[in-house]
């Protein structure tokens, strides 16, 4: 029953997300790839679309994957799955368990979860850099120059932006930048 699998998978992903949309990416990638719902490059495009459209990124990703797997009903069950853990946990906290969060034991465990998630995000980012900026042909590591140029330009421009405007470039602007650079670099080279 694919709807149940979608619901259950996204429920687990929602339950183990600590700290917003990006924190979800390592686990979501694992689940989506192991279920053969998307290929690795499709996954990144899905994240890109979810980030560049309005609304909570988690909902966007769930709807997108759900639709890809089994249409409108699929997206409904995936979205329901990702929402439900948050909904239940917060209801429990506001009604009964508010004091629980201030307990040192709970704080410690939560900080442990958070520490793992930070490591997972870094690891996933480095893995994506390795997979997308390099390629292996005849067991020889080669550099994908087009991707390196785009990645390098984005890094450079965000640093310049911060120096000039004294604030971070918004994620939305970075995504637009990626799109424009992709259009230019891949069309020319």
């Amino acid at each position: 029953m694919i709807y149940l699998t979608l619901f259950y998978t996204f429920f687990i992903v929602g339950l183990f997300t600590f700290g917003g949309g990006y924190a979800m990416i390592p686990l979501l990638e694992e689940k989506v790839l192991s279920n053969n719902w998307l290929l690795e490059d499709e996954f990144l495009k899905m994240v890109a679309i979810s980030e560049s459209t309005p609304g909570p990124v988690a909902i966007n990703m769930a709807t997108f994957v759900g639709y890809k797997v089994s249409g409108v009903l699929g997206s409904f069950f995936a979205t329901l799955g990702v929402i439900l853990p948050s909904f239940i946990i917060i209801l429990l906290i506001v009604t009964l368990l508010r004091k629980l969060l201030d307990k040192p034991v709970v704080k410690n465990i939560l900080s442990g979860f958070q520490a793992v998630v930070i490591g997972l995000i870094f690891g996933t980012a480095v893995w994506f850099i390795y997979k997308n900026l390099f390629s292996i042909t005849n067991s020889q590591l080669a550099i994908e120059w087009t991707s390196v140029i785009i990645f390098g330009s984005i890094s450079l421009l965000t640093i310049l932006y911060k120096l000039i405007f004294k604030k971070k470039m918004s994620p939305y602007l970075i995504i637009v930048l990626g799109g424009v650079l992709g259009l230019i670099v891949f069309s020319v080279l």
């Binding site: 990006y22 990416i25 995504i175 992709g182």
Partner: peptide, 10 residues
């Protein structure tokens, strides 16, 4: 291009 921007954002 968007995918590469996402890697940067992650």
């Amino acid at each position: 291009g968007l995918s590469i921007a996402i890697i940067f954002l992650i």
